[in-house]
């Protein structure tokens, strides 16, 4: 008897470590300061966006430069839910995912007609069009943007419990709630992508990325898989966008649809860490945050450095930092490679 497995010892160890980390992360607000929680919120949301972009570009071969469309629309849909429908901000977050999903359908119809570079530019143009259209939405502040109303931010679901639990003030409780939601989201997105890659769909995805014709010839429906990946990525990006702007409680088209914040940084994180791996974005976001903290006092030098590092990595280590580590050590923390076990090769002398 033999079977296919992706399980390795490193993979099991990672799973246990991840579980411990998540539990520790949930308990962290008990001891951490508000600043730490805000930093972690930033790290977790950027990591979520990086994992999603990595799924699109690194696994799906869909190099989108327009993910800010889904961040922005998700955030605006959440604001619309709160301001126009009077929903609680937490319940309005799924609305952000839904709106992004709805936008992704016509976007995919349009962008999938375009190849390679055209696809990248096409998605960017759609993001710009979305930004310009949203800027016309006068009830949500038009071009200057708006804030979440005081009565909405003061009674967000769960903040009362957090206030009594950690005896913190209202604004800090909101940060803790946002942090918990970000933690749940990053675990769901990373776990979901990992599950996807180990499933049949993931195998098909890798086949399509590596060679579309060969994948088609063995019966993989390349078009359907790209659609699935694009829609899943859009919805998850929309949720993340809604969560990010629930925490800031203030929105404007320029901030919500910023190509630098929601696409350029995200791409740098993935590239520096290592594209096409789940470990890469995790390593990348740590490097990104350390650089950001170290160079925080130098204003735009920081971004310049980040851009130059991304170029250097692309030139000399195209598989990123994790690629270097993995090539030297053979380590895979999230193994997706299928192996045959229990197979005994016999014969040859009969």
């Amino acid at each position: 008897m033999y079977r296919l497995t992706t399980r390795t010892r490193a993979g099991t160890a990672t799973a246990i470590a991840a579980l411990v980390l998540v539990v520790a992360g949930l308990a962290l607000p008990a001891i951490a300061s508000r600043g730490v929680i805000q930093d972690l919120f930033f790290i977790l949301t950027m990591l979520t966006l990086a994992q999603i972009w990595n799924l699109l570009a690194g696994y799906g071969g869909l190099v989108s430069v327009g993910q800010q469309a889904f961040v922005g629309l998700g955030a605006y849909a959440m604001f619309a839910g709160v301001i126009l429908l009077g929903w609680n901000p937490v319940w309005a977050i799924p609305l952000g995912g839904l709106a992004a999903l709805v936008l992704a359908v016509p976007t995919a119809f349009f962008a999938f007609r375009l190849q390679g570079a055209y696809f990248a530019i096409g998605t960017w143009v759609i993001a710009e069009v979305t930004r310009l259209l949203v800027a016309q939405w006068k009830t949500l502040g038009g071009g200057t943007g708006t804030s979440l109303p005081r009565e909405a931010t003061s009674n967000i679901v769960g903040t009362d419990m957090i206030r009594t639990l950690f005896s913190v003030r209202e604004a800090a409780a909101r940060d803790i709630l946002a942090y918990w939601l970000a933690l749940v989201l990053v675990v769901a997105v990373t776990g979901g992508i990992y599950w996807l890659l180990r499933s049949r769909l993931g195998l098909a995805l890798a086949a399509v990325r590596d060679n579309v014709e060969a994948a088609r010839s063995v019966g993989v429906d390349a078009g359907r898989i790209k659609w699935a990946v694009f829609l899943i990525a859009a919805a998850a990006t929309g949720l993340t966008g809604a969560l990010i702007f629930m925490q800031t409680a203030r929105i404007s088209p320029d901030a919500a649809f910023a190509v630098t914040d929601w696409t350029a940084y995200v791409i740098f994180i993935v590239v520096i860490g290592g594209i096409g791996t789940i470990e890469g974005p995790i390593l990348g976001v740590i490097v990104f945050f350390v650089l950001r903290s170290a160079l925080a006092d130098y204003g735009s030098w920081y971004l310049m450095t980040l851009g130059l590092i991304a170029i250097t990595v692309m030139l000399f280590a195209p598989k990123g930092l994790w690629g270097l580590i993995s090539a030297r050590s053979g380590l895979h923390l999230f193994p997706v490679r299928r192996k045959l076990v229990g197979l005994k090769i016999e014969g040859g002398n009969g």
Binding site: A264, L308, A310, I311
Partner: peptide, 8 residues
Amino acid sequence: VTFGLSVA
């Protein structure tokens, strides 16, 4: 690479 160059 050109995205990095753009930001830099």
